[in-house]
Amino acid sequence: MKRFSLALAALLVLGLAATSMAADIAVKGSTTVQPIMQKAVEAFMAHNKGIAISISASGSGDGAKALIDGSTPLAMLSREMKASEIKLAQEKGVNPKQIVVAYDCITPVVNSANGVKNLTMAQLKDIYTGKVTNWKEVGGADMAISVVSRDSSSGTFEFWNEHVLKKERVYARAQMQASNGAVAQVVGKQKGAIGYVGLAYAHAPGLKALTVESVAGSVENTLNGTYPVSRGLYLYTNGEPSGDVAKLVNFILSDAGQKIVASVDYVPVKGSAAKKGKK
């Protein structure tokens, strides 16, 4: 009888552990979306004590892979899922649903000691393809340009590559970084460096945000369509979100959640309906 009681107790413990793990949500993907998710999750868990949420940010490509292989119910992407990713997902029985949670503008940044204030789209392309290698060629000091870029798993890289480089190959000597934070850190330490980051990272210590075509990256200029390098920020779920995942998504899209979006220097979806088709 004692042995039976011990076995029953063990089963109950395992059952409770399984229930606890089932309630956990592992969110994975974009480092650009991470500031929104981090702050939203903190606020959400403060009012939902029984729900545990972890966040792992290593790039939009990794977020898409995690959704496809089932290791996350909620993927963060700073780009839309590719047709090839959607096809692979559907082959594995996953039906990706896109949810726009914010807008962002990708902001070129230089070291705060750099005298350059503005670059055109053409100048940015020439710098990032290696055609321009000295700041004096774009109105700055006689100083070599150190190009800092995101790596290829990043949605930010893909957007920059498509909209700025026009799909030309990035400069072979570019320093490829795994996150927005890493780009900010490298540029902040190198006087001749240039990088690009999401708006939430553009004012990190040691950085100066550049205007593009004389337009500053800002919430206002993203909404009015004048800033030329703007995009949507996304969450993806497998089909219509349900349970605790739906509660979290609904919180991010609520007034309180959208205030969090604004508080980390991104552009809330609400009030942005006229801003159509941001990618």
Rank of each mutant, 00 (worst) to 15 (best):
T129P: 06
G232R: 09
K166T: 02
L16Y: 11
V116Y: 11
L67S: 11
A193P: 12
T72V: 09
S20H: 13
R79S: 01
V109Q: 08
V187F: 03
T72M: 09
D265W: 15
T133K: 14
Y201T: 05
G115Y: 05
D255R: 00
A273H: 15
M143G: 04
I252T: 08
P241C: 05
D265E: 12
P35I: 00
I86E: 14
P228Q: 14
A22M: 05
V33N: 09
K2S: 05
Y236T: 02
L223M: 02
T211P: 06
A66R: 08
N118H: 07
S242Q: 15
P108E: 09
Y266K: 11
G257H: 08
Q190D: 15
P96L: 01
T226V: 01
A200D: 04
L16K: 02
M37S: 10
R173L: 03
S54P: 07
G239N: 12
I53W: 07
G63M: 01
A43I: 01
S242K: 15
A204G: 01
N95R: 06
A89T: 05
K136E: 03
Q123R: 09
G115K: 10
G61C: 02
G115S: 13
K191Q: 04
G206D: 14
G271Y: 11
L199M: 15
Q98V: 00
L14S: 10
D24K: 15
D244Q: 07
D151Y: 00
N48W: 04
L119Q: 09
N250V: 01
G192P: 06
V41I: 15
E91Q: 11
P108W: 01
S152I: 05
E213W: 06
N250H: 04
I25H: 13
G93F: 10
G243V: 07
G155S: 10
E168T: 05
Y201N: 08
S56N: 12
M81A: 02
L248M: 15
T107S: 14
K39S: 09
D69Y: 03
G61E: 10
V249I: 10
S152E: 15
Y227S: 03
R3D: 15
K208V: 02
V219I: 06
V110C: 05
F159M: 00
M81S: 01
D126V: 02
G139H: 07
A174P: 07
S218P: 11
K2A: 12
G29Q: 13
N224H: 12
K247H: 14
K270V: 04
S242V: 13
V249Y: 13
S263V: 05
A273I: 12
A40Y: 08
S254V: 03
E240F: 03
